[in-house]
Nucleic acid binder design. Sequence first.
DNA 1: TTCGACTATCGTCGATTTACGATTTGACGC
DNA 2: GCGTCAAATCGTAAATCGACGATAGTCGAA
Lengths: 106, 106
Amino acid sequence: MSADEALATLAKALAHPARIRILRLLLATPGCIGGDIVGAVGLAQSTVSEHLRILKTAGVITGEIDGPRVCYALNPEALSLLADFVASLKSPETDACCIPKPKAPS
Amino acid sequence: MSADEALATLAKALAHPARIRILRLLLATPGCIGGDIVGAVGLAQSTVSEHLRILKTAGVITGEIDGPRVCYALNPEALSLLADFVASLKSPETDACCIPKPKAPS
DNA sequence: TTCGACTATCGTCGATTTACGATTTGACGC
DNA sequence: GCGTCAAATCGTAAATCGACGATAGTCGAA
């Protein structure tokens, strides 16, 4: 998969309000979280499960079986590519802040 | 529009390889660029125009009429929201860099 | 004015996405 | 074994997206 496609895939994973909300929930939750997600987003269980599957396929989150439920957590590394790209768009020449990486990705 | 929807809209604007490619082209082009985009992405003119419209609607790029052609340029400010969100996902607790804005935009 | 180059818009088609209820799977306690 | 709860999967219908050709509009040059 080309870099463009990889970026598009990552962006597509974030391209839905329900998934943004899920990521916010994971971000705000220290440990694990399972079926509470369903109640929080206000969609049907099957729909939420589908969104979780999309996020998991994109590598943005990880699902770990923890007894009777599943423990979801963020996978920050997967977003490095997108974060770097967006940052490069934001500051094409003037790095107003955090310049550590010029444009490292390979 | 809620913050979640705004983020999803921004992400959706990036959720296509052709649009990623267009943004790369704009990033790599110092000044203006017009119909050269069509040749570079290898799609029909109408299709490219549609992608440009989507990017423009999302506020990611700006189109300025410059005589017979249109001058497209990146609009870094529009990406601040997305960049901030992705960065917060990348470093949920350890802000290795630039923490200035907790969640400023309204 | 007429021509040619460039861009935007319209209409349409097929593919993909989204959402839901219903069903199935898996893990636990009885 | 059996029932229960949580999660995933299946099947389906509505909505959206992506691509294209054809068309219309705009500008500068001849």
